[in-house]
Nucleic acid binder design. Sequence first.
DNA 1: TCTCTGCCAAGAGGA
Length: 687
Amino acid sequence: MLQLEELELLKKSLEGEAGPPAELFQKKVEASFSKTVLSRGMDNRYLVLAVNTVQNEEGNHEKHLIITASQSLEYKELCILRNDWCSLPVEPGDIIHLEGDCISDTWIIDEDFGYLILYPDILISGTSIASSIRCMRRAVLSETFRSCNPATRQMLIGTVLHEVFQKAISNSFAPEKLQEYAFQTIQEIKHLKEMYRLNLNQDEIKQEVEEYLPSFSKWAGDFMHKYISTDFPQMQLSLPSDGSNNNSTCNIEVINSLDIEESIWSPRFGLKGKIDVTVGVKIHRGYKTKYKIMPLELKTGKELNSVEHRSQLVLYTLLSQERRADPEAGLLLYLKTGHMYPVPAKHLDKRELLRLRNQMAFSLSNRISKSSVGKEKTNLAPLPQIIEEEQTCKYCSHVGNCALYSRAVEQQMDDSSVPIGMLPKIKEETQHLKLSHLEYFRLWCLMLTLESQSKDNKKNHQHIWLIPASEMEESGNCIGNLIRTERVKTVCDGQYLHNFQRKNGAMPITNLMAGDRVILSGEERTLFALSRGYVKEINMTSVTCLLDRNLSVLPESTLFRLDQEEKNCDIDTPLGNLSKLMENTRVSQKLRDLIIDFREPQFISYLSSVLPHDAKDTVACILKGLNKPQRQAMKKVLLSKDYTLIVGMPGTGKTTTICTLVRLLFFCLETKNSQRRKFADPSPLHP
DNA sequence: TCTCTGCCAAGAGGA
């Protein structure tokens, strides 16, 4: 009865009879409605029409949401949020996904049952959410200023060891094989490049990697049947489906690896992630044996068995449900010791992690502060609160950005609240910056955020899971109903050539061209975003793609769809550069001087000091074909100590000038190098 | 109305 009255009340408020707040949200509801696909069922998407806080009979607060999944907005349902779910920052106009039961048009989400996912089409990675446990602000900052932290030596070792273990579990743990995989992996170009960047010696890395190998064997001997040395070790693990059976002691036997680096997107839970190894596992308990497919997460650092590490696994059990039955638990393996911990995915943990996900999704999608009056200046929204935990901040790689954002953006607002204890730290981190620098950061941060928002509607790939291929084809950016033909050709590790043809009928008219980035999915909901890659060739009958995964493991009859990857407006790079520009280094200082404070660029006087004088003919040859202004521009660049801007209307030959410049500079470098070699300069030159 | 620019990505570990 109460519910019906409530519906009426809220309906009135929506129609504007109950005063101003409803009007405020009316526009947002309309805006969301026009660009979202609402649906019920597995991937349900509800539009929130109204939010009402009420007191229930026991005197506790509840949030009642009036929601609809019908495009006509006519058919309404009620969603009741209880306990901690009440603090969810949900507003009319928001899109939500609900997990649980709906009984007579009412959803109840409480401590023990059901989940609400806010903005489910924003997929957030498992590691991001895990890192938000300690500091939500750090997690949001690292999503925003992505490309800020270059990898360290430990990270490189970690990546290498992951690869070695993954090769071993797919093939063999025999000691000589492990040696071979380690050697192979270290030789890979991408790793050699990193070693070069970090100024590390290949032998050094090899030695450190080899120190881990005995633990690999130990683990295989403990958990895999074919390497077994003694009995399986006793482990403590009880799964929710074991019910009240409180014998939690069991043996875990790893049967096989089913996938490596499995990448899963979950629009049900608003999550994404890559699972190190997907393993088939037998759980022996007394006389009973249960078979499960579980995520196995590898860690090469300290054996922390920390909340962060365990949370990653809990989130992976949610991801796994997109592809197969609920694993109910995951396995956490520390490669230094070979110790493995089973991690059960309890409702409580999943609930709290999803609530963190919601908070993060809220922060990520509300980057611009909404002014209540409307005429206020557009501004950046504050980030989640700064925490006051010296230990966490001490080792945080985002202190710079954290302090910078606080001073340049948040402290300019009235409602900024920084924990008193953190003020000195923020000052210390930003004292090398002038007011003009802070203002520059604020302005460009705002501009970039606004730019990304204006294109955001297209940015994520929600059509893959919300719109069937047959419908998407009309836009020309998708081809569905494809089957794999011919054998998959392995070009190299991580590049597989696939050929597809329409199962029946001709290929549709399409915008897809050779060179386009694509996302390949199965048409079934369990198989989307299986792989990404490029179109290699496309014609009237077939399409060839270079993909990052080998799909030959899937049944031949699998139906695929190809979606063009939207040219995503990448503000990551410019934001990263902006953050770098503010660093307390000599290079950044110089750049700030030039770019923000407009110091005039300097030039040297004579070309003779840059151009090798005995190379006149070659230089003339390179410059051949350039007109006078182009040559003048080249000269200016060569004399430049700071920068030169080359300005010109489209088609006046800026690109030609730059290409020639690259050839010329390369020539200068070559000449210098060969001269050095001639004079037997002992200082080794990097290639 | 057209042109130009930005693109691999989720996690590698530290205390």
